[in-house]
């Protein structure tokens, strides 16, 4: 009995890939994409469907960042999401924008710079420890926490 080759399009991809990194990106898009389906849909369900997105004030974010599992989860979402999106936008630029090499170079440089900056900003925001109100800092003297400006503490 002949075993059917299941990964027939991986073979196609291998044949089509102009370079090895291109094939690595092809595989990465499928692996990260599958992981992101679970990570993103659960993230959306937990933070937007089950809870009102607009209700996420500083205090809630600070306390949720205090948990290491949560940080790790968001770190995975951030890095996988931006790498997946960054490579995806590269496909879009290659297919749908100008073929002029100089112009394309500037489009890609700008887009990669923005994505890189956001990645670093997001990583820093997760690494830096936020003062948790009521634990690391206090509310303004005599103020009712619920009555202050969206619960902004004196941090």
């Amino acid at each position: 009995m002949i075993m059917a080759i299941k990964a027939r399009s991986f073979k196609d991809a291998k044949a089509q890939a102009k370079s090895n990194p291109e094939l690595v990106w092809w595989v990465f898009m499928r692996l990260s994409g599958t992981a992101l389906v679970l990570l993103t849909l659960f993230h959306l369900f937990k933070n937007h469907i089950a809870v009102d997105e607009a209700s996420w004030d500083y205090e809630q974010i600070a306390s949720s960042y205090a948990g290491w599992w949560n940080k790790l989860y968001l770190f995975a979402l951030l890095t996988l999401g931006l790498l997946h999106g960054g490579n995806g936008i590269r496909y879009v630029i290659d297919d749908f924008t100008t073929k002029k090499p100089a112009t394309r170079f500037w489009i890609k440089s700008t887009v990669y710079t923005i994505i890189g900056s956001v990645l670093i900003f997001g990583m820093l925001a997760l690494i830096v420890d936020l003062p948790v109100p009521g634990v690391d800092c206090v509310y303004p003297k005599g103020a009712d926490p619920a009555a202050t400006n969206r619960g902004v503490p004196d941090c």
């Binding site: 925001a125 902004v152 941090c155």
Partner: peptide
């Protein structure tokens, strides 16, 4: 492709807006 570009734009906005907690409660 269209949804991908839209999601990437939102992800950038979302990271900057939620990450602004790093700059303090008032900024956020």
């Amino acid at each position: 492709r269209l949804s991908g570009v839209a999601i990437l734009l939102y992800l950038i906005l979302h990271t900057v807006s939620i990450g602004s907690t790093m700059l303090g409660a008032e900024v956020y």
